[in-house]
Design a protein around this nucleic acid. Structure first.
Length: 501
RNA sequence: GGGCCUGUAGCUCAGCCAGGUAGAGCGAUCGGCUCUUAACCGAUCGGCCGGGGGUUCGAAUCCCCUCAGGCCCGCCA
């Protein structure tokens, strides 16, 4: 049974699944794992709802490396109240959230988005805050017991936001006169926070169980950092049981995704691939595939370089086998859970990604590529799919491909020279193919061998001639196939030109 | 010190939850083809399932112990 089906069998038929993020920086593939894990569970359940809770009231922790120094003054201010870094979004939080929400949409994730600053502003937290404040001693006891630390005397299960400086966590609570929390801020301001509004927030360890209680959460994927003993998951369980009197959600602990050779993905260190980047380099189905085929508790070493091609190829192959009926149940399920918008009625035909890496560098224009190279083998229905994949391949080549896969056809004769042997090779080869009717990969390829033998030069040298003449570099794509992709007149013309020099 | 996860073919992993003849992809080798790469097709090679013990007619799978690796564990989230 697929992991998503196993997990959902432990849940009520219509579970409420919650996941969340603090949008303090670019949102990366690791966060995609959280929401996609939730999405898989939702799909595996008969029906149910998936929530994406953006912790927008959370304060900016520090000036991250990707921010400029002007953000110093916003440290400790809620992300929803900080100006957008680029100026075109409503807030700092939206700046990072918006592209990610678009990515989630492209991935076919059906969820409703909640913003914690709005949840507080709408008064959703009122009862929870009151309960926690009234049970303060009990809360302190839980946190002390489970975390093994002692809380400061000034600790309070509610952090007011100072009405003067706008910062969170800088005020000491003096008293609670329902529904107002009286506080004194380190900036000198004294004020009152209304727990029915977003005048303040709960500290994380209280906020999390409060959410479960308020929303009635049945299931929540959580990163392994939360799951460590004495962590916020442990304390959350105890708080929801003892203070709110209900049960905690069913947890699904997921492992981190590492960037091959660079360590764990993390927004704050910049070791990360943004969600947007993922769907820019491969189809969204492939992104889902990566996460659906891997159990949440296994860590993933993601390598966006050459191994990315293996991933795409594996997806294509799984897809073909799905329609051939060759897949085992689990693999079938992986394929189904990887789809964006239902399972295609007919098997989608895709030009192999690996092959496109070459074609894309030969043809600037997709229509030329279609016309000259792939159109014969594929039908009109495949054109749109090709077009999309070509965009992905281009993005990959520009951003993640290793240098040796890159080349460009030189429209003008490159600055290269050839010795006598090479010239006579070109002459012989040219005269062989000039009047040849049936060009094919094999013929062009084996002709290189036979011609090289006739002229008496090394074969490696013979192959190199073409790359130097056409690409201006020593190596290039597999030759027979490559020459076939070129415009025939261009190839002949280039060879003649070389001889004339 | 505590927690979670992972050790299965050269590499990446599936199989473990519901015990019943050890799998896939990639790589390698060979052939197709006197044949560069990052293509294709076919075949072959490759593993006392980290180690030890237990349960069982039977263990990669369940239980206990052990070794190795990864990550997490002040506050905050």
């Amino acid at each position: 049974m697929h992991w998503a089906d196993v997990e959902s069998s432990d849940l009520p038929p219509e579970p409420l699944i919650a996941t969340g993020i603090t949008p303090s920086g670019p949102i990366h593939l690791g966060s995609l794992r959280e929401i996609l894990t939730g999405d898989a569970i939702r799909r595996a359940s008969e029906s149910g709802e998936l929530l994406y809770i953006a912790d927008t009231i959370d304060p900016l922790r520090r000036v991250y490396p990707f921010l400029n120094d002007s953000y110093e003054k916003y440290v400790r201010m809620p992300l929803s109240s900080i100006p957008c870094p680029c100026g075109s979004h409503e807030s700092y939080a939206d700046h990072y959230l918006e592209p990610f929400l678009e990515t989630m949409d492209s991935l076919g994730i059906d969820c409703s988005v909640r913003y914690t600053h709005k949840m507080y502003a709408e008064g959703l937290y009122e009862d929870a805050v009151r309960k926690l404040i009234e049970s303060k001693d009990k809360v302190v006891q839980v946190l002390t017991e489970l975390t093994g630390r002692t809380l400061e005397g000034s600790w309070y299960p509610y952090n007011p936001r100072c009405s003067s400086c706008g910062l969170l966590g800088t005020a000491d609570v003096i008293s609670f006169e329902d529904p107002f929390v009286h506080y004194r801020c380190s900036c000198g301001n004294e004020g009152m926070a209304d727990i029915r509004t977003d005048d303040g927030k709960l500290p994380w360890r209280c906020d999390w169980p409060a959410r479960w209680w308020i929303l009635g959460v049945d299931c929540e994927p959580l990163g392994k950092d939360h799951a460590a003993s004495g962590g916020s998951w442990d304390t959350g369980i105890k708080i929801i049981k003892d203070i709110f009197g209900t049960s905690p959600p069913h947890p699904i602990v997921y492992e981190w995704i590492q960037l091959k050779g660079k360590g764990v993905m993390s927004s704050s260190t910049g070791v990360a691939i943004k969600g947007e980047d993922m769907i820019a380099m491969v189809e969204p189905e492939v992104v889902r595939f990566l996460l659906m085929k891997t159990k949440p508790q296994s860590h993933i070493d993601f390598d966006p370089g050459l191994p990315l091609l293996d991933l795409v190829e594996e997806y294509d192959q799984t897809e073909m086998r799905y329609y051939d009926g060759e897949l085992e149940d689990d693999q079938k399920r992986v394929y189904e859970l990887s789809q964006i918008d239902g399972i295609p009625e007919y098997p989608p035909r895709r030009v192999p990604y690996r092959h496109l890496v070459n074609l894309v560098q030969i043809y600037e224009d997709v229509d030329d590529m279609w016309e000259i190279s792939v159109g014969d083998e594929y039908g009109p229905d495949d054109y749109e799919r090709l077009n999309k994949r070509v965009e992905k391949v281009r993005y990959w080549i520009d951003n993640y491909a290793p240098g040796f896969v890159k080349f460009s056809i030189k429209r003008e004769m490159p600055e290269v020279s050839f010795d006598e042997d090479e010239i006579s090779f070109i002459e012989k080869y040219l005269s062989s193919i000039k009047d040849l009717d049936g060009w094919s990969d094999d013929i062009l390829h084996s002709l290189v061998h036979s011609t090289a033998e006739e002229v008496g030069i090394q074969k490696g040298k013979a192959f190199g001639i073409f790359y130097r003449m056409i690409l201006g570099q020593k190596r290039g794509p597999k030759l027979g196939r490559f020459l076939m992709q070129l415009d025939r007149r261009f190839l002949l013309q280039r060879m003649k030109e070389t001889l004339e020099k």
